[in-house]
Simulated assay, not measured.
Amino acid sequence: MDLTHFNDKGRARMVDVGDKSQTDRTAVARGYILMSPETIEAVKSGGIKKGDVLSVAQVGGIMGAKKTWDLIPMCHNILIDGADIDFTVNSDRIWVEAKVRTTGKTGIEMEALTAVSTACLTIYDMCKAIDKKMVIGDIKLVKKTGGRSDFTLEG
């Protein structure tokens, strides 16, 4: 398997996508933040002093997707056609799912993963005053379409 982010001297490079065709591309990523039941209740009831946790995390996740190229060294600056974040609140965790779409020459998986990560970090930041034991976990790509291959995580 060739590692495309290395040049012939073994040093890092940004992959040249200039000759690739533009295609519709989507990515879905998912992860969670584990927290105490008391923190879950505070999030649901609006009892977090910093504000509406999920609304702020929604914006934070979208902003994270938009800034991925600025954070991950070899990512291209991609024009994002759309990004959305969904939350599922359980008794001990909040699941975060990001769906991101573009029409371009390179994939959008990193943007979806960064959106989930940033949304989870935003939730952590907003709740850390009442719960220092929160854990962010299981962030992964669950679906990708467009480009050379499609991908769906089984299960």
Rank of each mutant, 00 (worst) to 15 (best):
D2R: 15
T23Y: 04
S149C: 03
G107K: 07
E41H: 14
H76Y: 08
V17S: 01
G18Q: 01
N7T: 07
T88V: 03
W95I: 14
K105I: 02
I139G: 07
K132L: 02
K67V: 05
F87P: 13
G107E: 09
V43N: 15
P73C: 14
A57W: 09
K140M: 11
I33W: 14
G46H: 00
V100H: 00
V59P: 09
A129T: 07
A115W: 14
C120Q: 00
T114H: 05
I123V: 11
T103A: 13
K144E: 13
T26K: 10
D84N: 13
K50V: 08
T26I: 06
K66L: 11
M110I: 02
S55G: 04
I130F: 10
G137R: 04
R148H: 06
K99W: 14
K66E: 10
Y32A: 06
K143R: 15
R30V: 05
G104T: 08
R93C: 00
I136P: 12
N90Y: 03
K49M: 00
T122C: 13
M63Q: 09
R25P: 15
A42E: 12
D131H: 02
I62R: 02
L71M: 07
V142E: 15
K133H: 15
D125S: 05
F87E: 10
D8P: 08
R148D: 12
V135P: 01
K20P: 04
T26A: 07
E111C: 04
V89L: 12
V17I: 02
T145C: 07
D70R: 03
E97C: 09
A29K: 00
L71R: 05
I136G: 10
M126W: 00
I123T: 10
C127F: 09
L121K: 12
G18S: 06
K66F: 08
A115I: 14
D24M: 07
I136D: 14
E154H: 11
A65F: 06
